[in-house]
Each structure stands twice: as C-alpha cells, then as structure tokens.
C-alpha cells in the first residue's frame, strides 16, 4: 500500500476572514474551501483544470482552485463567490447576471463571476473581445455565452456609474420584421 497522506494545518485568509483548517497535504484549495471551510459556492466540473467552474481569486488573480494545493494558499488573499456581495447588497456583476438571465442552472456562474470581477478590476470598460478572452477558459452548458458577455458589459457600466443598458431585444423578442411581399 502507498503511504497515506499526512495532514497539515494552515490559516487561510478567505474573503478577508481567517479560517484555521487542518487537511491532508495533497488536498486542493477547491477541496479545502468546500469541505473544510464549508464554502460550497465554489463549484467543480472536472477537477482537472478544464472547466473553470472552480475559479477563485488569489491575490486578485484568477486561479483554478482544483489545480492549486491548499497548502500553497496560506498567507495569500483568497476571494470566493461568497465574498462578492457587500453585506446584503449584490455586486453589480451579480445584479446584472440575475436580471439578464445570464445564469440558468447557475453551476458555472461562481467561477465566471470571479473571473469577471478580476477583469473589471483590471479593465473597468472592457470590450466584448476582452470579455470573451478573459472568460474563455470557462465552460457554460446552458446559456450560450452571449448573455454572459452582455451581463459583464452591463455590470461594468453599472460599476462605472454609466447608465448604459443592454438593448431591449436582450429582454424582449426582437420585433417581428414585416414579411416582404
């Protein structure tokens, strides 16, 4: 038999709160967030770095938490979906995603929101191309992506205090064109 894992301890700083945790050394940040800290908002779709569902921010940078050992995350500043809202107020990204129907099953959304947050911090007025590029490592099986891109644009506008909104056809049907005779 292989030697079984040893356990280690760490104090993880997650969403500005300290979590003292003990875990097997080989466990990933994803596992420790979900299993030791009870922060199940961070999801998994592969645990192989392929889907992006597990993305969190570490020192402001996007990280796939399934590919990072929790043991490496001590002394770092970890941000997860649970820390996105301020008290009971939603972050503009959350408002935009909820109101635009950019979340369907919602399973891929925590990862996407964290990446979008990092993007907006870097680039308050991102182009469509920049948004697609920033999120291109994440898979969503429900939405078809376009609505997510639009929601990020909307959130960016909200965060800048700009009153730009997605066009009406993002909420209603495009009005039926008249059939040419």
């Amino acid at each position: 038999m292989k030697a079984r894992s040893t356990t280690t301890t760490a104090v993880l700083k997650i969403n500005d709160e300290d979590h003292a945790v003990a875990f097997p050394v080989h466990h990933t940040l994803l596992e420790v967030l979900r299993e030791e800290c009870g922060l199940t908002g961070t999801k998994h779709g592969c645990e192989l770095g392929e889907c992006g569902a597990c993305a969190v921010l570490v020192d402001g940078e996007p990280v796939l938490s399934c590919l990072m050992l929790a043991a490496e995350a001590g002394d770092r500043n970890i941000e997860t979906i649970e820390g996105l809202q301020r008290n009971n107020d939603l972050h503009p990204l959350q408002t935009a995603f909820a109101d635009l129907g950019a979340t369907q099953c919602g399973y891929c959304i925590p990862g996407i929101l964290m990446l979008a947050k990092a993007l907006l911090e870097r680039e308050p007025d991102p182009s469509e191309g920049q948004i697609r590029e920033a999120l291109s490592g994440n898979l969503c099986r429900c939405t078809g992506y376009n609505r997510i891109v639009l929601a990020v644009q909307w959130a960016a506008a909200m965060a800048r205090g700009d009153d730009w909104r997605p066009p009406p056809e993002a909420f209603h049907s495009t009005s039926l064109p008249q059939a040419s005779a």
Binding site: L39, T40, G41, T42, T80, I81, E82, L84, Q85, L90, L93, Q94, F97, A98, D99, G101, T103, C105, G106, I109, P110, L113
Partner: peptide, 11 residues
C-alpha cells in the same frame, strides 16, 4: 428576475 436568480449568483 428569475426567482432563484439571487441564490445562483451568490453561491
């Protein structure tokens, strides 16, 4: 806004 919209963006 879908009724589960908020819980789906907050984790």
């Amino acid at each position: 806004r879908r009724v589960d919209g908020r819980t789906k963006v907050t984790g």
